[in-house]
Amino acid sequence: MSRQLSTVNVNEQRNKGISFKLDLQSYTLMIALVLIAVIFSIFTGGEYLSSRNLSNLFTQMSVIAVLAVGMTLVIVAGHIDLSVGSLVGLTGGIAAILQVWHGWSTFSVVFAAIIIGAILGLWQGWWVAYRAVPAFIVTLGGMLVFRGILIGLSKGQTIAPMSESFKQIGNSYLPYVPGYILALVSIVILVFWTIRNRSKRMNMGLMIPAATVDYGKVAVYSILILLITYMLNRYYGIPVPFLIVALLSIIFIFISNKTAFGRYIYAIGGNQEAAALSGINIKRNILWVFIIMGGLSGVAGVLLTSRLNAATVNAGNMYELDAIAACVIGGTSLMGGKGKIFGALIGALIMASIDNGMSIMNIETFWQYIVKGLILIIAVWIDISSKK
């Protein structure tokens, strides 16, 4: 009996150590984000943390964040998509062409952009999944094809202006009172979800973290939600693009963590042979990953075109690298099988923060490329080192 108790105690201590290690790893990104905010705030005389700049920051990160959500699934599945920047430009350009040149309504052009993005994602996914062409080659070709189609359709012109309702997608704000109501509802859902998860794990006989840990996290997240809402409401309110990112993130975090499809993607990326032997339809799931990536590229294209109130032939240029960098910085392994959407969102925020802070400091553009490139190299090196 005493031997069993000692074994249980050892296992509990081991589990606590694992839990602490995982928490430390996940919070490293948050610490890095705080350090970036403090450094830029000092060098900009506090301008970086002003309500206006924070609102601009969350709006600017929205396009890359949407792409990072889909890119996380692609990389976790063991693939890569180099075409998303060109696809963002193409879908946004098609939306502008349909509205400015052909008079389509806002709802119709948004729907068309997302569907066209998904269809082009289906086309690329078919080559990767059913014709076994490496995703790197397929999407590299797609990057050139989509950019060429955009130049051909637009005749090399800048297409503007968009209708007022379309502009509102990327440039409007949720008013103060609804913003606070949404924040309080989010906190209530967070508390309910935590209680439900603890109760579910208890009923299944699984290990439950200490109540102070779980509810401490809830308290920290709640404070952050209220603080962000307060800071954004000091300007015009919560930007609608930020709300779109939050909604898509919740949907795909649920899909990746709580559905069979999500678990299949992690299994395929972790060990494709084992996944096949387990009866997982690898081709169909890979196809769906690229369809989702294409649809999200359509959403990003709409957000970008709406925010700029125009479509240009260079729209979305190099966005694929920012999306990949956001995922890698957020802990997604380029080897596949590992990665979290929440981490990719923090990575997107870090990338946007660096761009935003260096712009406020009037640092020349070439330095921004250099810094982001070095960050990407270091992030991949850290991933490879942790694997070893």
Rank of each mutant, 00 (worst) to 15 (best):
S41K: 00
W193Q: 11
W367P: 06
S2I: 15
L140G: 00
Y230H: 12
I115F: 15
I268G: 02
F136P: 02
F166G: 02
F342H: 01
S256V: 10
G343L: 05
G89F: 07
N309T: 09
G216T: 10
L5E: 15
Y130R: 11
Y27W: 08
F43Y: 14
I80F: 05
F43K: 06
L5D: 14
G46V: 03
K283Q: 15
Y173D: 05
V145D: 04
V299K: 01
L150K: 05
L122A: 13
W288R: 08
Q272F: 07
G125T: 09
F261V: 04
M361G: 02
L35G: 01
V240H: 03
L184A: 12
E364V: 13
L22C: 00
N257T: 15
A219N: 03
K167T: 13
L73Y: 00
L153E: 08
L57N: 00
K338V: 14
G357Y: 10
V76T: 00
R3K: 15
V145A: 10
G301K: 02
V100R: 05
I223V: 15
I360E: 12
E273Y: 15
L54K: 00
N257Y: 14
P239G: 08
I137A: 14
T365V: 14
F136D: 06
L308D: 11
L308W: 03
F136R: 05
A326C: 11
Q157H: 14
V245S: 07
G237V: 07
I375Q: 09
I187K: 01
Y369D: 13
A118E: 01
V110M: 12
R234F: 10
G85H: 05
L277N: 07
I114S: 00
S199E: 12
I228V: 11
R307A: 08
A96V: 07
N11T: 11
I255T: 09
L287T: 06
G156S: 08
L54T: 01
W123D: 05
A246T: 09
G262N: 10
I225D: 06
S297R: 04
K283F: 12
M351E: 06
Y221D: 10
A96L: 07
F58A: 01
F107M: 12
T91L: 12
L144A: 13
T28L: 12
D383I: 03
V138Y: 03
L49V: 09
G125L: 09
L90S: 06
L304K: 03
G339R: 10
P161A: 08
L54H: 01
I253Q: 15
D23V: 04
V69G: 01
G205S: 12
I291Y: 00
G336I: 02
E164N: 12
R307H: 05
M293T: 04
V10P: 00
A267R: 08
I119M: 15
M361W: 14
G262K: 08
L287M: 14
L22H: 01
Y221I: 14
Y266K: 15
S249D: 06
L296N: 03
I341P: 04
G103I: 07
K200N: 09
V188D: 03
Y369E: 13
G339S: 08
L206T: 08
W193K: 10
I329H: 05
I36V: 12
L5K: 11
V213S: 13
S249V: 09
M143C: 06
S165R: 10
M1Y: 12
V220E: 03
W101H: 13
S19M: 11
K167M: 14
